[in-house]
């Protein structure tokens, strides 16, 4: 009896620890970022689905405005969004005894545009808005940074937004070499250290 118990315990102990080790190996593979799409949570717990562009063409095709510019100002803003009476969201808030406004917090980045690669732009300065709870999904954006921005204009908020939180940004270094923030596909990765004019030409060719 004792002999069987001894064998059983040994088998159980080995099984448990080997399964932990094996699962650890699986985790490494599973945690590699998916190229096609991913679900992420923002800092406030919002569920966002992000689809990654499969090619530069796809990114360019869905970017109404592509510019090169420098970040000259970053300003944190908190804006009240009025919930309109009779809408489902207002009804739900009223039922909970909550306030009839929701707060949209974020940062307005003022971009001084130096080159328009795609789209029409009259102003030399534009404002890019990023929600506060999504900042950590973006590359670090600092004043004086120069980048190629892939943007779309949001009518409801009256400002520009990026078309993709990572692929929408290609940094332009002081030596005019481009560093794509998104490098999960070979085509994007190959843009690294290419001259700005060459990247601009590639975008123009797609356009």
């Amino acid at each position: 009896m004792k002999k069987y118990l001894l064998i059983a315990c040994t088998v159980l102990a080995v099984t448990v620890y080997s399964s932990v080790e094996l699962s650890g190996n699986k985790t490494k593979a599973a945690e590699e970022p998916a190229v096609e799409s991913q679900i992420v949570e923002t800092a406030s717990g919002r569920l966002i689905q992000i689809r990654n562009p499969q090619s530069l063409k796809e990114l360019v095709d869905h970017s109404p405005l592509i510019v090169k510019g420098e970040i000259v100002k970053a300003e944190n803003v908190q804006e009240e969004v009025q919930l309109i009476e009779g809408t489902p969201e207002r009804t739900a808030v009223d039922a909970q005894g909550g306030k009839s406004t929701h707060i949209r917090s974020g940062t307005n980045y003022t971009i001084s545009v130096t080159d328009v690669i795609k789209g029409q732009l009259e102003d030399k300065e534009i404002i890019l808005f990023i929600r506060e709870d999504e900042i950590n999904l973006r590359p670090e954006l600092k004043i004086s940074d120069e980048l190629i921005f892939n943007l779309a204009f949001s009518e409801p908020i009256g400002r520009y937004i990026d078309v993709h939180p990572v692929a929408g940004y290609l940094k332009v270094n002081a030596d005019n070499k481009v560093i794509p923030m998104f490098d999960s596909t070979k085509e994007f990765a190959n843009l690294k250290n290419e001259a700005y004019d060459e990247v601009k030409r590639k975008i123009k060719d797609i356009e």
Partner: peptide, 22 residues
């Protein structure tokens, strides 16, 4: 609730490749 489009676009302005679900 499924919200109105106006509310959603105002609160969660998403780019082409991103969308807030819930």
């Amino acid at each position: 609730v499924t919200t109105t489009q106006q509310y959603w676009d105002t609160m969660y302005p998403d780019g082409f490749f991103t969308e807030t679900l819930g």
